[in-house]
């Protein structure tokens, strides 16, 4: 099962290397990892999607890094989760109409149209991206670029925040 965790870390050089080295050293599998600024310039937010059953250890090992300030593990359904992808699909002139119809349903935006391909941008919850990708696989996906996930807790007390020493 995949778990989503948010990690607030001090915005210091090398902090991404510290986190990824820790994951590698402990043998934890990262599905995706994103990092970026937050509302507080001294902090960066990482959103990590991890596989595997060792959640308790992962959270504790993250906390063990001196530059980790806070770790939040999201229970399924308690966070707003977003990904973005660019997907290029084979689109011969006679299939174009059909492909664009399907894209509309999935809120995919055509951002580049070539002679034989269309490139779509899809933003949204992870399953929307997955659905669209599955739909497009029938036509042939020639290139795919996908971001990692970002997530914020919904505006209620749903994220299980793990205090540092518990």
């Amino acid at each position: 099962m995949k778990h989503v965790i948010a990690v607030l870390v001090e915005n210091k050089p090398g902090v991404l290397a510290r986190v990824s080295t820790m994951f590698a050293r402990r043998g934890f599998n990262i599905h995706s990892l994103t990092v970026g600024p937050t509302e507080d310039p001294s902090l960066s937010r990482m959103t990590v999607v991890v596989d595997g059953p060792e959640m308790e250890q992962i959270v504790k090992q993250l906390y063990k890094l001196v530059h980790t300030v806070k770790v939040m593990e999201f229970e399924p359904g308690t966070a707003i989760e977003r990904e973005i992808m660019l997907v290029r699909v084979n689109a011969s002139p006679k299939l174009r109409g059909e492909i664009l119809d399907a894209a509309r349903v999935c809120e995919a935006k055509a951002v580049d149209v070539g002679v034989t391909t269309i490139t779509f941008e899809v933003t949204g919850p992870p399953d929307r991206l997955a659905d669209f990708l599955q739909l497009m696989s029938a036509y042939g996906v020639t290139s795919l670029a996908k971001s990692g996930r970002i997530a914020l807790a919904r505006d209620q007390k749903t994220a299980k925040s793990q205090t540092k020493s518990a």
């Binding site: 308790e56 250890q57 504790k60 090992q61 906390y63 063990k64 540092k164 020493s165 518990a166």
Partner: peptide, 17 residues
């Protein structure tokens, strides 16, 4: 003193950090 040691190898019925 290191929470990560607790229940790492063996489950702790009573963890004390």
């Amino acid at each position: 003193v290191d929470p990560a040691e607790i229940s790492k190898n063996r489950f702790a019925d009573v963890p004390i950090v």
